[in-house]
Design a binder for these strands. Structure first.
Length: 123
DNA sequence: AAGTTGACTATTT
DNA sequence: AAAATAGCCAACT
């Protein structure tokens, strides 16, 4: 596979990353893009999620912008209000300003316990 | 094929 | 702290 995924390939990888965001945590568009191997393509992630059909089971609501706010325009059906409700339902806390304190609840994949793939150091 | 668009970001007012 | 600016990337006209 080549250096910079694009098209359907990129969409697939973005979906994989989003699926990996744990409950009660959030990731930023830029972060998702980088993890998908397309650093800098934050806007592409936004576009991908915006076209996402319903019923995919993808935790799209765990993706917020770098300021810790919800980017989805409230105008959309349900809208950002729904996103906030979903997040709060799984324990994400919002500051009075309406922002999520990323310092506390941003997903840090590098800190995750890797239960699998313990190479040879363990044996 | 050039220009526009967007669920972005970092920088500068 | 909020708003305007200027880059950004890939898709779409």
């Amino acid at each position: 596979v080549s250096g910079r995924p694009a098209g359907a390939e990129l969409d697939r990888r973005v979906a994989d990353v989003v699926r990996a965001i744990p409950r009660g945590r959030v990731a930023t568009y830029g972060q998702v893009a980088a993890l998908a191997g397309a650093a800098g393509a934050a806007r592409h992630v936004g576009r991908f999620l915006s076209h996402l059909p319903g019923g995919t089971g993808l935790p799209w609501h765990r993706v917020v912008n770098a300021a810790g706010r919800i980017s989805e325009p409230p105008s959309r059906s349900g809208g950002g209000r729904r996103q906030r409700r979903l997040l709060e339902a799984e324990g994400v806390r919002f500051a009075p300003s309406g922002r999520i304190v990323l310092a506390d609840q941003l997903w840090r994949p590098e800190l995750e316990v890797r239960a699998v793939a313990p190479p040879r150091a363990c044996r």
